[in-house]
């Protein structure tokens, strides 16, 4: 049974429709990443789940309890949901340990706070004031503070964006460990696709207030449903074609496609699914970027400029004539071409 069920959420701020019928479920122990460009409604969705905004329509259920729905609104303090904001939002008048103990009640709140600090290796900072912490330390204290009351769900609103890459990876694995240890679920809002791919069990892509695709990172990456998902998640080459069952005629010639389709279609072909070869579609290298583990080439062809992930040994440089072959079937996207 799913832990969190979200159905038909709608929210409008003035004239702009921020959420237009969003629904999904979250399972125990799962990390779901909400991905989307800024303004897609991710943060609003999270704030509705936490009870910091009220939706215009739809409902949210946690276990058997309805958090919000027609005629029902459970205030945030009664939801048992943890929230980590983009900025640490530590209470400036409280020491670190008092910040962590803030959400705890009962006699052993001190001890629980100390435990939460210890779990994230923050014991040394327990007596500091928030203004004496670095950004990374503060964000980890915020995480400890959110986890200390043992929430059923942890909501993370782009909590890692202000941290540098090294810190980000460290704190991510700490979150993972904590989620596993406490057997809770987490919802992570991010616009960083790599973070979403690496961190989440499932991905949900929001676009203009709608949930356009949800699935495992592999599914979403390899089988994007719309041109938006295909180009937002990683890089891709979009092609027009005329589908005839398992193949399509395109400017690059006849390509294999998945799934089967007929008629005019949009196709996605990832850069790493194109290779340089002795035969194939002719083109001319326009630009080249060395990435260490591979080389990205921009090749002008009859189908327009294509992005190609080439082997790190390739010598092709701007101006060279090359030929391209697809290594995987192109993915058929929704919507008419």
């Amino acid at each position: 049974m799913s832990l969190l069920t979200v159905h038909g959420l709608e929210k409008r701020f003035g004239k702009s429709q921020v959420l237009a019928g969003v629904g999904f479920t979250l399972n125990p122990g799962e990390v779901l990443a909400l991905l989307g460009p800024s303004g897609s409604g991710k943060t609003t969705l999270l704030r509705i789940l936490a009870g910091l905004e009220v939706p215009d329509a739809g409902w949210v259920r946690l276990g058997k309890q309805t958090l919000v729905g027609p005629g029902i609104f459970l205030p945030p303090e009664n939801r048992g949901i943890g929230f980590v904001f983009q900025e640490p939002a530590l209470f400036p008048h409280l020491r670190v340990v008092d910040n962590v103990a803030f959400g705890l009640k009962g006699r052993d709140r001190r001890r629980k706070a100390e435990e939460a600090l210890a779990a994230l290796g923050l014991t040394a900072f327990r007596n500091r004031r928030p203004d004496q912490l670095s950004g990374g330390q503060a964000q980890r204290v915020a995480l400890a503070r959110a986890l200390a009351p043992k929430p059923r769900i942890l909501l993370l609103d782009e909590p890692f964006t202000s941290l540098d890459a090294g810190l980000r990876e460290g704190i991510r694995s700490e979150v993972r460990a904590a989620i596993r240890a406490q057997k809770i679920a987490a919802l992570l809002v991010t616009h960083d696709q790599e973070e979403a791919l690496a961190f989440a069990d499932r991905l949900a892509v929001l676009h203009r207030g709608r949930l356009v695709q949800i699935g495992t990172p592999e599914e979403v990456y390899h089988r994007p449903r719309t041109p938006f998902v295909a180009s937002f998640l990683g890089h891709t080459n979009l092609l027009k074609g005329e589908a005839h069952g398992d193949h399509a005629e395109t400017a690059l010639g006849r390509l294999k496609i998945v799934p089967r389709a007929r008629g005019p279609v949009w196709l996605s072909l990832r850069p790493e699914h194109l290779a340089l070869a002795a035969h194939g579609v002719p083109g001319k290298v326009v630009d080249r970027a060395f990435k260490g583990h591979d080389v990205t080439l921009w090749v002008r062809t009859a189908a327009g400029e294509l992005r190609v992930q080439a082997d790190y040994r390739t010598r092709a440089k701007p101006g060279d004539a090359v030929r391209l072959v697809p290594r995987e079937p192109a993915v058929v996207l929704e919507g008419e071409a």
Partner: peptide, 9 residues
């Protein structure tokens, strides 16, 4: 908001 999500009315 942080306080509210930490269970304080």
């Amino acid at each position: 908001e942080a306080s509210r999500t930490l269970g304080r009315g």
